[in-house]
């Protein structure tokens, strides 16, 4: 069972509506059934290239964010990072949805198909090439049983 690091592009305690607007990146380590905070990163630079490089340097596997332009998403994809864009909601809700594989329910209006990854070619990508999302041991695994109390 491999360990995965996910990154949430946040504004305050919610996902930033646009990736470029995020004032903080929150990292979570996903190991089997557990999600643990793995650090935060506030970058003074709003330069998308700087942000992309910083996130890449943190060993992130999956980025969850709001609206993101094609070019930035492509940069992540080229680096082998899965991107789950067009998601909205508070950090806790997003983590819950990620664990339950229901991020589609938090899709921004009019973006459901894109957030689910099926609408646009090239919109989904990941290291394993099996579509984005958390790398899970078993498709039907009950992963969120014990993780709620472990994040803060």
């Amino acid at each position: 069972m491999s360990e995965t690091i996910i990154c949430l592009a946040c504004y305050g305690d919610r996902l930033a509506s646009v990736f470029d607007n995020a004032d903080e990146f929150r990292f979570y380590k996903v190991d089997g059934e557990e999600i643990c905070p793995a650090g935060r990163l506030s970058l003074p630079s709003k330069d998308p290239l700087d942000r992309t490089s910083a996130i890449l340097a943190c060993g992130v596997n999956t980025l969850i964010c709001g609206a993101v332009c094609r070019r930035t998403q492509q940069q992540f994809c080229n680096a082998g990072i899965a991107v789950r864009p067009w998601v909205r909601g508070g950090v806790e809700d997003v983590l819950d949805a990620f664990v339950q594989d229901t991020l589609g329910s938090l899709a921004m209006p009019g973006c459901r198909a894109v957030a689910d990854g099926g609408a646009k070619p090239g919109m989904s990508c990941c290291r394993s090439g099996k579509g984005f999302g958390r790398q899970r041991a078993g498709a039907g695994g009950d992963l969120n049983k014990s993780n709620k109390g472990r994040r803060s």
Binding site: Y11, A16, S17, V18, N21, D23, A67, R88, P109, G110
Partner: peptide, 25 residues
């Protein structure tokens, strides 16, 4: 311009529909 149908936009937070460079803060 936004590519989002009105029926999906209505009742939603404007930042979740408009996705502008000003929307966060």
């Amino acid at each position: 311009i936004t590519g989002i149908p009105a029926e999906e936009a209505m009742g939603q937070k404007c930042r979740d529909v408009f996705h502008s460079s000003l929307c966060d803060g």
